[in-house]
Design a protein around this nucleic acid. Structure first.
Lengths: 108, 108
DNA sequence: CCCACCTGTAAGTAAATCCTTACTGGTGGG
DNA sequence: CCCACCAGTAAGGATTTACTTACAGGTGGG
């Protein structure tokens, strides 16, 4: 799977954080969970978890779906996406050229 | 290859940057190069490149070796390491438990 | 000596990230 | 009504990262 350089960068930035690694790990191990439950499980505050989940979802690494429990409570369930990123020098060499130029000296 | 959670985090942090992705890509494509040449190739200042190279080397993604050219000039050659990181939910679930606790809010 | 290369590092600042506290609003039940 | 859950957002500050400019030292050669 060849993803664009910017998308790769977004995924790497999303994963380069201890909390977010733990979030992905927890979701991968215990499957679907809702936000408050996940916050208790990992041991961080809900607003903070919300921030991290947003970043992970923007990168496409987790997905969310709002559901209503039998009690009528609205629960936002999160699930890990089945991603598989191959991180090798060659793969990076293929993805890097399609990075949006932040500042480029196109001299020769 | 199963690496510890902290090491994985260090590698991800090192790669989660457009300049550093480009550095790895360039080294992978054109092979060994010395610092000044690489700085010209990528189009960033040498002190900045030096900073990024340091981070990449600390993560074990590139290696450096100081050599002396026929002219007697000391050149510091960099080379990409043959890493292969598998980034999947399962792999992260295996690595995450061995993350050093940064700050536990409250155990309960 | 001065210039053109190469190397490295230190200081200061700009910018992005992380995190906490506080607020708003929904549901069901004692 | 108040409490226990659920959800999300906003503001402020603390920390980290990124970057520039400036400096110090090495070699070889005009």
């Amino acid at each position: 799977m060849t993803c664009g350089g910017d998308q790769l960068l977004e995924m790497l930035s999303a994963l380069a954080n201890p909390h977010r690694l733990r979030i992905v790990a927890t979701l991968s191990t215990m499957g679907r969970t809702y936000v408050s439950q996940l916050a208790r499980e990992i041991g961080i505050s809900r607003p903070l978890l919300h921030l991290h989940l947003r970043k992970l979802e923007e990168a496409g690494l987790v997905t969310s779906r709002l559901e209503v429990s039998p009690d009528g409570k609205a629960l936002n369930f999160f699930e890990v996406a089945p991603f598989a990123i191959e991180l090798t020098p060659t793969a990076i060499a293929e993805a890097a050229p399609s990075l949006t130029a932040t500042s480029r000296h196109s001299d020769s």
